[in-house]
Design a protein around this nucleic acid. Structure first.
Lengths: 249, 249
DNA sequence: TATAGTTGTCTATATCAATAGACAAATTTA
DNA sequence: TAAATTTGTCTATTGATATAGACAACTATA
């Protein structure tokens, strides 16, 4: 029902071009493992027939994916899959960036892109249990695994309790390690709200995506084991490279 | 960072038309509550300027949303928001359709669209702990709340253990009630894998969506309290109407 | 009752997206 | 080597997308 390169799923006049839709389908098929690495895609004429479009339209889709580094086309031979399956990012009671991707990647780390002190917006204040306008520290981060961006997040912390967490983050490259410096040995994911949308210009730049890509968005609150909110965050994941695995909390 | 009608987020040559991107932005802004019901949208010229596009392009976006029933345009007065915020669909250890939407809707139910007996595919077999090709019953369902489709799911059950569950489902309109007839008083969500993609033709028809819409996809396994798999399912949710709230398992 | 502000309609033009067909170039297979 | 298969390139045409400008129609307000 999902994922196979099925015929019945191309929409015209949708505001999404046919080549983009076909590119998305190929990406999805690769992501769920329909094509192993180095496998050959069906020839262009076959794909065109399957989707009921012109061969040139299929070529547009393929060339976009070649551009993205997902496929490699060889004249006379065929078109081949380069990239691997989607990463499976676990979300649970103890959601941690690095440990979650162990086994799937050889290397991963978090980069601190920017930090600032600002008054809490309505939703941040609610999430952290602070008064609206209270000072909070915002950390803008990007998660990378094997050299590819896999997440882009903003995290907010009570400025009074966590003064200097930006420096700690820059030094350690780890939220968990930074919180440890403030006496937080353990923390739990209290709530996660999930949505999806098209990537905007910022996402495209931050996550190295091509226009038209989809991002998964999580808005979450982390708390101490006794239920005290310590972090409010909004994270964006490239849907073509990451799926979220919801594990037992 | 997210959600406001921001200027910096329109991509050209993306395979997604500008009017579709703007329509998505407006939908998102409504969904996260930037516009309350009956609120007026900024005038077309203002939106055009904000996004750096022609007024006619904004009009295309608006007319698509009027078509979808999200907005109402009145000549001389303005354009107004009709629809409410997204439903928040809870996913946790005891994910149940009806109870999860209580409080947010006045009415909700599940419609059985089709059922069949078939050999288990690789992934269904893995999910249910059966041999590949073992007989399974597939139930195709649609969840509706206040008359609007909010989910479209396929569920698979071991045909030997749950023979007749299709009839029970048709009669009761509830997975929980149907399972109860087979002695399952309680069941837990064991795993959920989440992804997002553009809606395909089937989604458009089933979920009453417009072309270009995004769907959230969950693939889940439900087990008895002692860990025995009883249901494998794949559900699709319209991202413009539903967000997923991951609660404690 | 003017006037300003807003949506609705029309014409025209340029660019992107998609189709159609033909043939070249490279590789594999018979 | 010849034939079949597959990707690459080119020309031409059509329809959708986007821009630009002008003005009509309607509403609210000064």
């Amino acid at each position: 029902m999902v994922g196979r390169l099925t015929a019945d799923s191309i929409e015209r006049r949708s505001g999404v071009s046919l080549w983009r839709q076909i590119a998305d389908k190929i990406l999805h098929a690769i992501a769920i493992g329909d094509f192993t690495e180095n496998a050959a895609l069906p020839p262009e004429v076959a794909l065109a027939e399957r989707y009921g479009v012109n061969r040139h339209t299929v070529r547009s889709a393929i060339s976009a994916l070649v551009q993205e580094g997902v496929l490699r086309a060889e004249q006379g031979r065929g078109t081949f899959v380069l990239s691997r399956k989607r990463l499976s990012y676990p979300i649970g009671a103890r959601t941690r960036f690095s440990t979650g991707l162990q086994g799937q990647t050889t290397e991963r780390h978090i980069v601190l892109l920017a930090s600032s002190v600002e008054p809490a917006s309505q939703r941040v204040a609610e999430g952290l249990g602070l008064a609206r306008g209270a000072e909070v520290i915002r950390l803008e981060t990007r998660g990378e695994a094997d050299g590819r961006p896999v997440s882009r997040a903003a995290g907010w912390f009570d400025a009074r309790r966590f003064a200097g967490i930006d420096a700690a983050m820059a030094e350690t490259g780890s939220i968990t390690a930074s919180l440890a410096r403030f006496g937080i040995d353990d923390y739990l994911r209290q709530s996660t709200v999930l949505s999806a949308r098209h990537a905007d210009a910022a996402d495209l730049a931050d996550l190295d995506l091509q226009p038209g890509a989809i991002v998964l968005v999580t808005v979450a609150v982390n708390v101490t084991p006794d239920g005290q909110p310590i972090q409010f965050s909004e994270s964006r994941f490239p849907a073509e490279r990451v799926e979220l695995k919801l594990s037992a909390l």
